[in-house]
Design a protein around this nucleic acid. Structure first.
Length: 682
RNA sequence: GCCACUGUGGCAUAGCGGUAUUGCACCUCAUUGGUAAUGAGGAGGUCGUGAGUUCAAUUCUCACCAGUGGCUCCA
């Protein structure tokens, strides 16, 4: 007999043949809704025989519980099993396809196949087959296999063979999971039957490289989602639809916030007046904070000499993702006369044999030069130089997307030149600004990432000792933040580690927004010094920081965060004035003038359409308030308000309106305060 | 950069080997109307760009450009 500890702490005795599934049945009854079991905290199949636990004897015990789909672990198993079902369906339809890997991912699952290209329309066929297989209620069986057996089973699939030779230790064998005729190399666990996988939707089709390596075989990747019930699936699909409506690329167009024009160029944002208003508010907002923290504002040009970026390392490190350098006309002509090819030109530049100008990919070298323009003393440190600096990077064409990944963008950049003792305090100050921004905007769904160097890579500049110090500084700062963070190797900049604030867009892609980076290396490269209290030269440390990150990316994410419904202080147009008939236009003009005078962004509709029509039309632009003006308002010199929340307040004196509105704007309130939501009785 | 798909007036769409449909927005006229579409009329597109096939191409083929979803990359 074996002692089994149940979730409520009681201990039951079972026979040695007992499986995890039988115990879960015992605990929760037949209709338990669990899809797998947890044995001593480890995920196991229902078919797992407890006595098979290593080191368990007749007297030993284990704790067992069920795993439901209301947990991440449960959904992970469900998704992973759905990936298997997908592979089974694909193999039945395309017997020549070679399955490779098929993991669960955050919102669903995928499976990669080496196969002839298929299209979106084929997804329906595959999904149909999956439903068929699910309905057949095939039991999913775990089978232990020796090395030899594995090699026989997967001999015709080089991908599986590669996994076996890489991941399976010689002589240890591994397991396969079998459902019907189909089987796959897998450690599990899985659901006990395909019947659990009825509610699947294949969402998209794409390609990926085998093992993410561009030089290797290209595979067809099929994505899908799975839910435990029909309703849950419906809900998830609805949520995805809702999220798509917030897409900043769509809202940016509808709300006329920005424009991207083919003729201007890929990934180059044109800020239209409405979008520019949002950006300007954000910039003004942060400038106040910067002054408070003792920053100085600077301005620097959009280009700089190639040599500058050779020295900083940007040119050699990121040559492929920069716009080609600009070369002086005479030199260009001379080289052309010498039949110099583009390739040769590029080589000459790399070698440093010709000089040219680069569109700046980073602001730091320019700011470094400002630091270095005069002798610095420890008494002047920290020196904090800030600039909304526009930089240009030649991002891969396939990567460019809306405002979040572009080729020209403006960083709310600053560089702090500090002594080593000042690092901790200054980093905290930087983080504080990021937090003020997030808090003011109600963005609480972000994660913090400490990016460290990848010990196996040689892409970094500087000595290990300096890196150790810088990484320690970042870690300490992150710890003092008091929020959870992850440390990720390989996420550092080439010159130093960083603390990133990462948020997700509507389709689940993660974007780095705010960033703080500690850099011992560029000061070294540029031989920066300050005079210490001892009268000797010392090396400053640089902190690079950009709380918004890029104005483009931040605004893109912000559009999605607010679903286009900006709080009043940020709103492209705060008030739309609507007249009931032409008789009221005169008063409307007065109201508009008063609002403009008060610095309010206002638009008017004095056309002869009906009120209902005007409201309907103007709602689409999401003004915070509409002011409706008719006989009554004209007579009493008042305004009637209709908030974006569809609440109404009538007959407010114009003075009171402007006073309350400007107060709302100044407070940066996230809610409408003039037409608060009334408590509705049910 | 790689793969797949897509590209019709400002936006959203129909369509097809014989120069294009509908709605919203826009303009005009009538209407002077109180909180999610008043009525009538009108203008606007050579169907992403270029080349090819064809008597004829928006519709077929190719190249390029751009977008979308992924992969890879992201100072």
């Amino acid at each position: 007999m074996i002692d089994i500890t149940l979730p409520d702490g009681t201990v039951n005795q079972y026979s040695e043949e007992i499986t995890a599934g039988e115990i879960v049945d015992d605990i929760y009854g037949r209709k338990h809704g669990c899809i797998a079991a947890s044995v001593n905290g480890e995920e196991r199949d229902f078919s797992f025989v407890i006595a098979d636990l290593e080191n368990i004897g007749g007297t030993c015990s284990a704790s067992v519980d069920g795993i439901k789909t209301d947990s991440d672990a449960g959904m992970h198993i469900l998704r992973h099993s759905a990936a298997h079902l997908l592979a089974q369906a694909v193999m039945e339809i395309y017997p020549d396809a070679k399955p490779t890997i098929g993991p669960a991912i955050e919102r669903g699952f995928y499976y990669d196949f080496d196969m002839e290209p298929i299209g979106e329309s084929d997804l329906r066929t595959i999904q149909k087959k999956m439903s068929q297989l699910a309905r057949q209620n095939l039991s999913v069986e775990r089978v232990e296999c020796s090395d030899e057996e594995l090699e026989n089973l997967f001999a015709s699939n080089p991908y599986k063979m590669e996994i076996i030779s890489d991941k399976v230790e010689d002589g240890s064998g591994s397991t396969i999971y079998k459902q019907g005729e189909w089987y796959d190399l897998c450690l599990g666990p899985h659901v006990a039957s395909t019947a659990k996988l009825m509610n699947v939707k294949l969402t998209s089709i794409s390609t990926a490289y085998w093992r993410g390596d561009q030089s290797r075989q290209q595979l067809m990747r099929i994505y899908g989602i799975v839910e435990p019930s029909k309703d849950a699936l419906k809900e998830t699909l609805q949520r995805i639809e809702e999220a798509k409506k917030r897409d900043h690329r769509k809202l940016g167009k509808d709300l006329q916030l920005f424009h991207i024009d083919e003729e201007v160029g890929q990934g180059l944002i044109l800020w239209t007046p409405r979008g520019a208003a949002v950006r300007q508010e954000l910039q003004d907002f942060i400038l106040v904070e910067l002054r408070r923290q003792g920053y100085y504002q600077v301005f620097t040009p959009h280009i700089g000499k190639l040599d500058l970026y050779r020295k900083s390392g940007h040119f050699p490190y990121y040559q492929d993702s920069q716009y080609p350098a600009l070369v002086e006309r005479d030199l260009m002509k001379k080289l052309a006369d010498e039949d110099c090819s583009c390739g040769e030109l590029s080589n000459l530049m790399s070698a440093g044999d010709i000089e040219g100008y680069l569109l700046k990919p980073m602001n730091c070298p320019h700011h470094i030069k400002i630091y270095d323009s005069q002798p610095r003393s420890y008494r002047n440190l920290p020196l904090r130089l800030a600039e909304f600096g526009t930089v240009y990077r030649w991002e891969q064409s396939g990567e460019i997307s809306g405002m979040t990944r572009v080729r020209g963008f403006t960083q709310d950049d600053a560089h702090l030149f500090v002594t080593e003792e000042q690092i901790a305090k200054e980093v905290l100050g930087c983080i504080e600004i990021v937090q003020i921004i997030f808090k003011t905007l109600g963005m609480d769904d972000y994660r913090v990432r400490v990016g460290l160097r990848d010990p196996d890579s040689d892409k970094y500049v500087g000595e290990g000792e300096k890196w150790d110090k810088a990484e320690a500084a970042c870690r300490t700062a992150a710890l003092s933040l008091g929020v959870p963070f992850t440390e990720e190797e390989g996420e550092a900049a080439f010159y130093g580690p960083k603390i990133d604030f990462v948020v997700k867009d509507v389709i689940g892609r993660e974007w780095q927004l705010g960033t703080v980076q500690v850099d011992y290396n560029l000061p070294e490269r540029f031989d920066l010094t300050y005079t210490g209290p001892d009268g000797q030269p010392h090396r400053p440390v640089m902190i690079h920081r950009a709380p918004f990150g890029s104005m483009e990316r931040f605004c893109g994410v912000l559009i999605e965060h607010f679903a286009g419904k900006f709080p009043t202080w940020l709103s492209p147009t705060q008030v739309h004035v609507i007249t009931i008939s032409e008789k009221h236009n005169l008063w409307a003009q007065e109201v508009i003038s008063a609002l403009v005078e008060a610095g309010v962004r206002v638009e008017a509709d004095m056309s002869d359409a009906t009120v209902g029509k005007k409201i309907r039309t103007h709602r689409k632009m999401q003004p915070n308030y509409m002011v409706i003006l008719g006989d009554e308002e004209v007579e009493k010199k008042t305004v009637s308000l209709r908030g974006r929340n569809n609440e109404q307040v009538n007959g407010m004196p114009i003075g009171e309106f402007i006073e309350k509105l400007t107060a709302e704007i100044q407070s940066k309130d996230l809610q409408l305060t003039l037409t608060p939501k009334t408590e509705k009785q049910d």
